[in-house]
């Protein structure tokens, strides 16, 4: 099954419809299409490669940080598979580099920002806003 199909069947019905509309009404680099990918999702990562096989050190770092917080089932978009998305996401966020992380439909930043937020604890708060409880909190409680 192609990339769009996989994405569509994974999400709930609303996302499916949104993607279906986006699929047949516009290109994958369009604002509407990317809106459909990021809106209503807790965490979406635009990256090179896949979470299991990242093709870039910065993309890999983002995946590892998320896993460190116990976030395994996040949505990811492999920009190497779709040149339109790769260009489109850069225009969408006005951000020139990959990876790019979205939480709750909002653009969070790239690898450096993710790393900083991880180090200063803000990432736990951002995850909380997206309805995800960081695994680091569990670990801290178990210690107490």
């Amino acid at each position: 099954m192609n990339f769009v199909g996989r994405q569509a069947f994974r999400g709930p019905g609303l996302t499916f419809c949104r993607l279906l509309v986006a699929r047949y009404s516009s290109k994958t680099g369009s604002k509407e299409y990317i809106d459909g990918l990021v809106k209503g999702k807790p965490v979406v990562v635009f990256m090179k490669g896949t979470p299991d096989q990242p093709r870039c050190g910065f993309s890999n770092a983002v995946v590892q940080i998320l896993r460190f917080h116990g976030v395994e089932n996040f949505d990811s978009v492999n920009v190497l598979e779709d040149e339109d998305v790769r260009q489109g996401i850069k225009e969408y966020t006005e951000w020139p580099t990959i990876p790019q992380i979205f939480m709750n439909g909002e653009f969070l930043g790239g690898c450096d920002i993710m790393m900083d937020m991880h180090k200063n604890g803000e990432l736990i708060e951002e995850l909380k806003k997206a309805g995800i409880r960081s695994a680091l909190l569990e670990k801290a409680e178990n210690k107490d």
Binding site: F58, E94, W95, P96, T97, F107, L108, G109, G110, C111, D112, I113, D116
Partner: peptide, 26 residues
């Protein structure tokens, strides 16, 4: 922080268009 990165990226817009591929910013 995000706005700081944007400022830096904007200053280097031409460079991104002419071969700059990855930029880590502190």
């Amino acid at each position: 922080l995000v706005q700081r990165h944007r400022k830096v990226n904007n200053v280097l817009e031409e460079e991104f268009g002419s071969g700059l591929h990855a930029l880590s910013i502190v």
